[in-house]
């Protein structure tokens, strides 16, 4: 009995080895790219944040938490954080509200429905850089769209982008305009999954459209709202293209955002370790917000 058993057990072992080699070979390209361009830089960033920036003859020195201490007493960093908080607090609810209103409007049977949907979606197709250029014209002091309209009412021109009190809100408006159309598509899809018979059943009971929206539509599209709000949050920290075109963070850091400040530190002042420190902070904020949103809202979301 023993001899034949040995013969049978050896073969499969070789087979298993071969399978493993095949598996690794197949996974290799993706693994290499993923590690090389995502995981390794991420780990490197965290490590860099504990070291000083190497310059010329001077190699990097281990600093521990010095970079983080410097950050907390950095007025521009605080300014960027406050700006980013305001920017997020406005863009997230505003673009969700706008997207939902647009979706509700074009989900009804109205004349030129297709054209309207396309018009609402167009800003999303444009690159943010191009959008920023269009809006620069809108904001142009004296000649821009807004000042032309103000002119009709005899109001004086305003330098929307160039004065500290309005610069941040000027770029906030651009973001809302740019992303609401994209979010509208998701709301539109969600609204179309709500059966017509629910609306009819509610109508027979005498529910107004207002009641129907808050009692039925809103709870049923909650999963979409959650998805969209997570995306809006990420965008609030990630989309800064228009800051480059419109304000460069100015005037006097009035419109500086966290990611723009990281770029400034990393690629204009070449203080790469400080930029790494700021990056770590940003990723932590995003992770906390994202996870928090998911778990907090998840309890109140009805998934079908």
């Amino acid at each position: 009995m023993a001899a034949p058993e040995r013969v049978f057990t050896k073969r499969p072992q070789i087979m298993i080895k071969r399978e493993w080699i095949n598996a690794w070979l197949l996974l290799m390209p993706a693994l290499l790219l993923l590690f090389g361009f995502t995981h390794l830089p991420a780990v490197q960033t965290v490590l860099d944040s504990f070291w000083s920036t190497p310059r010329g003859q001077r190699p990097a020195v281990f600093l521990g938490l010095d970079n983080y201490e410097r950050m907390l007493s950095d007025a521009v960093f605080i300014k960027a954080m406050i700006n980013n908080a305001i920017y997020a607090a406005i863009t997230i609810p505003a673009s969700i509200a706008l997207a939902l209103s647009m979706a509700l409007f074009v989900s009804r049977k109205i004349l030129g429905q297709g054209l309207l949907r396309m018009a609402y979606f167009t800003p999303t197709v444009l690159p943010l850089i191009a959008v920023a250029n269009i809006w620069l014209f809108f904001y142009l002091p004296g000649f821009g769209l807004f000042d032309q309209i103000r002119g009709l009412f005899g109001l004086s021109p305003v330098n929307w982008v160039g004065q500290p009190s309005t610069a941040l809100y000027a770029i906030t408006a651009v973001t809302v305009w740019n992303q609401a159309g994209f979010f509208m598509i998701f709301f539109l899809a969600a609204l179309q999954t709500i059966p017509q018979s629910l609306r009819e059943a509610a109508a027979l009971e005498g529910a107004s459209s207002w009641v129907f929206f808050w009692r039925v539509t809103w709870p049923l599209i909650m999963p979409t709202t959650l998805f969209v709000s997570v995306n809006a949050t990420i965008n609030a920290f990630r989309m800064v293209d228009h800051v480059f075109v419109m304000t460069q963070g100015g005037p006097n850091n009035a419109s500086i955002l966290l990611l723009y400040y990281i770029y400034d530190q990393g690629f204009r002042f070449w203080d790469t370790s400080y930029a790494a420190t700021l990056t770590v902070v940003m990723v932590v904020i995003l992770a906390v917000v994202g996870i928090g949103q998911f778990f907090l809202l998840d309890r109140r979301v009805h998934y079908r």
Partner: peptide
Amino acid sequence: MVFQSYALFPH
């Protein structure tokens, strides 16, 4: 009215 699909509110 009772609908063919019942039209119950799923949430």
